[in-house]
């Protein structure tokens, strides 16, 4: 079903269309709020967001994709909760969370600890290995909130950079810094796993 047809069906109160939208877009909405709240709260936020969607879908103007619009609703819902709990999340751009790859170079910028040679086809089967999948999930969960959000939206959900900037209200350059650091951390984790078999 095209996006326009799906939106029309949702406006008409078609429950099957709504279920289809929930199935397709809930993971993206969860990813969008991943950095703003804990996993249990994130699920609650997304459920509440779907309630808002029932009303708001009539005003959806298709200036953004449906996915981006739904993620924005979820992020707004999460932010409202944060404001109520008066919790502020600082932007994680300080040196304390600098890239773990930095220590793998000499002061002159040459490799000190080069990457391990991953076995051929290792990546094709990367996520078929439960132990690695679990390790990856553990390390993604341990990223800073901002890094986790951008990695989830860009690399897992594959959302356009401009949409992520709008949803998370980030500048392009801040998004790039966060994404870059998150990728370095994940690469360093997989590299360690490939070398030692340990998470």
């Amino acid at each position: 079903m095209s996006q326009a047809a799906l939106v029309d069906a949702m406006r008409a109160g078609d429950e099957a269309a709504f279920s289809q939208a929930v199935r397709c877009y809930t993971p993206s909405m969860l990813a969008a709020v991943w950095g703003l709240c804990d996993p249990a709260t994130a699920e609650d936020v997304v459920q509440e967001s779907w309630l808002r969607v029932i009303e708001a879908i009539h005003g959806f103007e298709a200036r953004a994709t449906l996915k981006t619009w739904l993620c924005s609703i979820a992020v707004n819902e999460a932010r409202q909760r944060l404001r109520k709990s008066r919790r502020e999340i600082p932007m994680d751009l300080d040196s304390a969370s600098a890239s773990p790859m930095e220590e793998r170079f000499t002061s002159g910028g040459a490799w000190l600890v080069p990457p391990t040679a991953w076995a051929e086809h290792a990546v094709e089967s990367l996520l078929e290995r439960d132990s690695l999948q679990q390790c990856l999930e553990k390390h993604i969960a341990a990223l800073s909130e901002d890094q986790r959000s951008v990695l989830a939206l860009r690399d897992i959900q594959q959302m356009p950079v401009e949409d992520i900037c709008n949803i998370l209200q980030l500048s392009h350059s801040n998004l790039r810094v966060l994404l870059h650091r998150a990728r370095h951390r994940i690469f360093a984790m997989v590299d360690h796993f490939m070398e030692t078999g340990e998470c």
């Binding site: 993971p27 990813a31 990546v123 094709e124 990856l136 897992i156």
Partner: peptide, 25 residues
């Protein structure tokens, strides 16, 4: 290896499961 990793990561999450859809509905 970074390119391969970035190509593999999207497959970590796909659509919502039946139970997730049921919870929302």
């Amino acid at each position: 290896q970074l390119r391969a990793l970035l190509q593999a990561i999207p497959f970590m999450h796909s659509k919502a499961s039946d139970s997730e859809v049921r919870d929302v509905m």
